[in-house]
Design a protein around this nucleic acid. Structure first.
Lengths: 191, 191
DNA sequence: GTACGCATGTAACTTGTTACATGATTCG
DNA sequence: CGAATCATGTAACAAGTTACATGCGTAC
């Protein structure tokens, strides 16, 4: 996975490992993250395979600029052309079992997550505004259609999640029965 | 991760490794999957740690029923009580780079993914209907609130994704310029 | 001159997948 | 009695994280 992210970012021009990391955080950080522990070994590997190459020309000695080679570009485009698949949404796993979580904590967690969603929604909205403005000044915005649409996706996704959580929490209101046993519980039918 | 899934399912009663796998597929299969290669070693590990135990009582010799132990239950509930986090949505990664994918293939891939989404939407709708009906016959549906809401989440998620993809594809219609260069392309401004 | 951000890297570990290998049970 | 499905397991590999270790550049 990280190989393709690296190659994809190098499509726009040479970068250092450190630079790649910060670009990843800024651009696809919403749904993907990389650590140096995977980044640097990946760069080494890709260079050995000839997919990327080390540029010497830079002034600094401690900086390594990598550039995309034709074989790397080919490899990236091949990956890109494979059929799309949905990936796992592991955070739903916890929700699935949430009937088992006892009540004071459960409500807190839901509220906390709700806050996170709203915060991210706000941040994404800000980013979207900036990006949309920058896009206007571009001569060929058509070339960025998918990049932009991923932003839209992120936005709609958060909206959907926020709404869903809102609905879920509003059903809860005022019902402070002591839950906590969940599906398997045949006992405690009081209240 | 798989440890907690196993413990969570065992909350409802003893199961075999094989049984766990099929329950996982049927229940959380929409957003999580496990292979035997991780399942069986996990069962072994959990048993060694005393989180689960092997039941002898079963007739078959080749079947191993595992049951949740108190320490396993505790461990599961502790995990469950940790704050919620959003996980990665790696399939968006490909979309992010889709400006680079050349046109005949790109359209095909989008259409293919669209078909997958609609198919899953149909399947989930069917599941939801069955589950909703089953829920009516339950004495305490409140105990399944979160399990059910995850279904709703899946449904809304697919709806959102399907709508997003629909919007994206409709913008495309009739514009068969030869794309393929994407963001980095300063050339080919014809058409 | 020192603190902070830029910059690179490795080793141990974690978690999971794929492919293989094998045997029991059940149903037609 | 043969095929499908139930059922368990391992070995090799893949991909990544965390924690550690180090050094350069520069702005105050």
């Amino acid at each position: 996975m990280i190989d393709n992210v690296i190659l994809g970012i190098l499509m726009e021009g040479p970068q250092t490992g450190y630079g790649l990391k910060s670009i990843i955080e800024q651009s696809v950080g919403f749904f993907y993250s990389a650590s140096y522990g995977s980044l640097y070994p990946a760069l080494k590997r890709l260079a050995e395979q000839g997919a990327i190459s080390l540029l010497e020309s830079d002034g600094s000695k401690n900086k390594k600029l990598y550039a995309l080679e034709p074989s790397g570009r080919e490899r990236f485009l091949e990956w890109l052309g494979e059929p799309l698949t949905r990936s796992r949404n592991e955070h739903l796993l916890k929700f699935f079992f949430y009937d088992y979580l006892a009540e004071p904590l459960r409500g807190e967690r839901l509220a906390g997550f709700h806050a996170v969603l709203r915060e991210e929604l706000g941040r994404l909205a800000a980013v979207k505004q900036i990006v949309d403005k920058e896009t206007e000044e571009l001569e060929n915005p058509e070339n960025y259609r998918f990049r932009l649409s991923v932003l839209t996706y992120g936005f709609r996704y958060l909206e959907m999640a926020e709404r869903w959580l809102g609905d879920l929490r509003s059903k809860e209101t005022g019902k402070h029965h002591h839950a906590g046993q969940g599906p398997a519980a045949e006992e405690n039918k009081d209240e």
